[in-house]
Design a binder for these strands. Structure first.
Lengths: 186, 186
DNA sequence: GATTATCATGAACCATGGTTCACGATATTG
DNA sequence: CAATATCGTGAACCATGGTTCATGATAATC
């Protein structure tokens, strides 16, 4: 038998509700609350996601998918002639913004280790960012020894729970470590 | 009546045990376990610290006290003729190292929402670091617009739960954003 | 040493929240 | 439309862990 249509719909509703609830109330968001927000009973939630960890993992995977899409789009623009460094800067800003809005990533750091390694989305994102980095390095805009891991390290340590002004300041402070040009007095 | 001697001793034993247990087992460290590690009953623990949040806050306050001492010592050395920028760099490395040891404590603080706002130790630390910054700026080693808050922002966003090699790399990437000299390829 | 306020004990209490399960509902297939 | 496997329901379950409190012990004082 093929999967029931309402089941598919419910799965998405749960995923959306989980993202919103976790964003709003942090990792403390209860399974009951998430289920209620999804307009579904707890049992239904557990039918789709055996436990809370799996649910959070799924939410993160979805988020990562969007990041991967974003990175690939940037890569495509570079391939079409856009400036690599400009694309990288903008991508980092967007990802940071998205991560700030979507506190699910924050929940990831706490609830899980870094166990999202084998996600296909992460592999896609890495590949795209890697291409962007190499392009920027060919242009001489990025330090030759900077790697994808460096970006991951910095972004994962970004103060995403801080107000926008603070996050902007953080970017100003951190970015010069990657570029070849020094800092322009911020 | 003056406070009983054993009560004072127990308070310290509890504080030590709390720091160790939380460091070892993360925020999940139970009050029972902490009390057991301190060689004390749970009730005793609760006599000294009304709730878990207060306990964690106290542990952090102690840590902050050490940081403040460290910062003031550095400031004293600078007043005695030492190079400000060297002292700042070394201080940041030491603080980072120390913070890495009880990263779990801070994680627990976040989980519990324990506030450390008006700790006298924090005020001491701020004052000392402020003096160091101004001295380094007079030497032209530090960007003129860098403030204590910037240091706080960076240090509080440091990947203290990562292995030493990763933390070192992080420092390499981040520090150029503060100094006037660019990054030396490394 | 007697007195007493302070302190220590730890079993029990209780709230929280993740998880289960027996039952009813419904979409899908033939 | 009948048959049935899949899905949805939500009250109840239970483990976890922070917190309390009646009771006994002990250090400080006179």
């Amino acid at each position: 038998m093929s999967p029931r249509a309402d089941a598919v719909r419910n799965r998405q509703k749960i995923l959306d509700a989980a993202r919103e609830q976790i964003t709003r109330h942090g990792p403390d968001a209860g399974m009951d609350e998430i289920a209620a927000a999804a307009g579904v009973a707890v049992g239904t939630l557990y039918r789709h996601f055996p436990n809370k960890t799996d649910l959070v993992t799924a939410v993160i995977a979805e988020h990562l998918g969007h990041v991967a899409d974003d990175a690939e789009a940037a890569q495509a623009r570079v391939a079409a002639g856009a400036d690599p460094m400009t694309e990288i800067t903008a991508l980092v800003e967007r990802v940071l913004e998205a991560s700030a809005t979507d506190a699910a990533v924050k929940a990831a750091a706490r609830t899980l280790g870094a166990g999202t390694a084998d996600e296909p989305a992460e592999i896609r994102a890495r590949a795209a960012v890697d291409a962007l980095i190499e392009a920027a390095q060919r242009d001489g805009d990025l330090h030759p020894d900077v790697t994808v891991d460096d970006f991951y390290l910095l972004i994962s340590s970004a103060p995403i729970d801080q107000p926008p002004a603070v996050r902007a300041r953080w970017l100003t402070l951190v970015f010069p470590g990657l570029t070849t040009r020094g800092r322009h007095s911020g």
